[in-house]
Amino acid sequence: MADAVTQAKWDKLAPRFDTMASAGAEKRWGPFKSTLFSEMEGKVLFLALGTGMDIPFFPKGLDITALDISPVMIEHAQERIAVYDGTIEAHVMDVHDMPFADDSFDMVVTSCTFCSVPQPIEGLKALHRVLKPGGKLLMFEHTGSRWYPFRYMMNVMTLITRKLGPDMNRPTVSNVRAAGFRITEVRNVFLDVVKTIKAVKQPA
């Protein structure tokens, strides 16, 4: 059962989402996302799909299962899904409540997702469960900062943005580790706030 509050928040934001994010952030982050997503291979689980703004950065010909908690976001993503040169199967689904069997995917990819998942460590544990042993987790995320004054700014911003959408101060790298992944690489894209994270599910 999807978290109704989170779902309603993103449903409400969906019609304005492209205007808010695409022209600025997506153009700026595009080259970094392209580089990260170029490593996508095998059977991929992607979240959160949103309005599909990440789709143009996907390598061609992949078999991707994409999730988002918001049905309105997925409605807006249909046009981009249709033009993707590969297969994207989009589902309205809460990461906390995925019906996939254990060890289902070769790779899990997230893009600005764990700023919004209500219980991030639990969500990451759910991803750990569905990832095959040895499978990779690739993340493009914004996080809190360890450094003043940036840490203070992210905390202040979060008081405002939490009501509208994402948190700005999540310790996502620590959360990934807490969920049982082994982190293999962290690349700071902007300060220590925007980053790519690579991790693996260690074989049992």
Partner: peptide, 22 residues
């Protein structure tokens, strides 16, 4: 923060917000 909402459409998210608040 107000300035960020004005320029975010052209200059991005964190890359605009953090310097402007600073």
């Amino acid at each position: 923060l107000v300035g960020f909402f004005v320029v975010a459409r052209w200059l991005g998210a964190m890359e605009a917000m953090v310097p402007l608040m600073f």
